[in-house]
Design a protein around this nucleic acid. Structure first.
Length: 195
DNA sequence: TAGAGGATTGAT
DNA sequence: TCAATCCTCTAC
């Protein structure tokens, strides 16, 4: 069963980030189905400086963050890596969850072809890498997660004690908000992007 | 319209 | 530790 609007339109983005752990991200692109279990996420909110939409400031890039929760926010980082986010809350309240790592499930072989590597461990253990493996690029920016190209299947619920929170990665510019414990990982999972 | 910098990655 | 690489935003 696909995750639906009630799941995404939650005023607490960090709660959605926690609940996404253990769920299955699926893409069906170019007649190829690829998927993985979400094992690492980060929450971003208009209330803090790490967010592209800090202070609810809308720009051409981040405009889909202001839509009703349940669409994809995909952007290009460092000129070469795509980042996949799940828009939550809203409409009008810009929040999103960055998916940072997956445990490969379906289409492993084809994901390795897309990623141009033979190393299974290297295909989905990072936000840029998982986008490449699943065929996600900016053409999916604004795509509904209730559609058939990219969506999230409800799976078993992860017990709270298996979820570890820590500071988010790569947002030193965010001042004191950089230390918010809004990165969530499955404790001990071998597919997370870094220890 | 120019210039700086980025929610990363993999090679050195 | 560092370069790749190009889009986005800000300031002029």
């Amino acid at each position: 069963m696909k995750l639906d609007h009630p799941f995404f339109q939650n005023v607490h983005v960090e709660k959605v980030a926690r609940q996404l752990l253990g769920q299955v991200l699926i893409t069906n692109i170019g007649a190829k189905v690829t998927s993985g279990i979400i094992v690492e996420t980060e929450a971003y909110s208009f209330r803090e400086m790490g967010c592209h939409a800090y202070n609810n400031k809308m720009t051409p890039r981040n405009s889909v963050m202001f839509e009703r929760g349940g669409v994809a926010y995909v952007y290009l980082c460092y000129g070469m890596h795509h980042m996949f986010n799940v828009v939550t809350n809203g409409p009008g309240q810009a929040e999103a969850v960055l998916v940072r790592a997956l445990e490969p499930l379906d289409g492993k072989e084809f994901m390795m072809v897309r990623s141009r590597t033979d190393n299974l461990k290297r295909i989905t253990s990072g936000p840029g890498k998982l986008c490449k493996a699943l065929g996600i690029d900016r053409s999916l920016n604004g795509a509904s997660l209730l559609g058939d190209e990219v969506y999230i299947e409800r799976s078993k619920k992860v017990p709270q004690h298996k979820i570890k929170s820590s500071a988010r990665i790569g947002i030193d510019y965010a001042g004191e908000d950089a230390s918010l414990p809004w990165r969530f990982t499955l404790q001990g999972n071998e597919w997370i992007s870094r220890p």
